[in-house]
């Protein structure tokens, strides 16, 4: 139990050990601990942010679906309207075409009638002359009566 130089030796050892601990042990471990504390805090914040983000995304998606639905509704309505229009147009066209065909047919019929009438008129004139010749049983001066006959034919 003598007090001797061991005391000094221990003191020097102590100083060196504390110096080493202060220089090479405490700071890196404290640094790691603080960094971890920070990264955990950051992680928790990020998780909370993610949660909010997800909710926002959910809402956005719902909104989009709503929009898409209403757009689809609109498109269907438009298509129905357009269909109705097309049918109406077709009807109109058909009607016009029909009328045109009828008009053309009428014109033709009239032309045919006129022609027939012309022919008939010529034939009637001839027939009349022949009839008159028969009735008179004599030669008639065709030239003398031609005026009268053509007047007659014109009255037909």
């Amino acid at each position: 139990m003598n007090i001797n130089l061991t005391l000094i030796g221990q003191t020097i050892t102590f100083i060196i050990f504390v110096w080493f601990c202060m220089k090479f042990i405490w700071p890196p471990i404290m640094k790691a601990l603080n960094e971890r504390r920070k990264s955990i805090a950051d992680g928790l914040a990020a998780a909370a942010e993610g949660q909010r983000e997800r909710e926002r995304g959910h809402q956005d998606a719902e909104q989009l679906i709503e929009q898409a639905k209403s757009q689809a509704q609109e498109i269907i309505a438009k298509a129905e309207k357009r269909g109705a229009e097309v049918v109406a147009e077709a009807k109109n066209e058909a009607r016009t075409e029909g009328e045109r065909i009828i008009t053309a047919a009428r014109g033709e019929v009239e032309m045919e009638t006129n022609r027939a009438r012309e022919q008939l008129r010529v034939q009637v004139a001839t027939l009349a002359i022949a009839g008159a010749e028969q009735i008179l049983s004599q030669e008639v001066d065709a030239k003398a009566h031609e005026q009268m006959l053509s007047d007659l034919a014109g009255n037909l």
């Binding site: 050892t13 050990f17 080493f20 601990c21 090479f24 042990i25 405490w26 890196p28 471990i29 640094k31 790691a32 601990l33 960094e35 971890r36 920070k38 990264s39």
Partner: peptide, 17 residues
């Protein structure tokens, strides 16, 4: 003392977040 420093130094070198 050296054992203490060695063990803690290893931990300090390996320390990460």
């Amino acid at each position: 003392g050296a054992l203490f420093l060695l063990v803690f130094r290893i931990a300090a070198v390996r320390a990460t977040s």
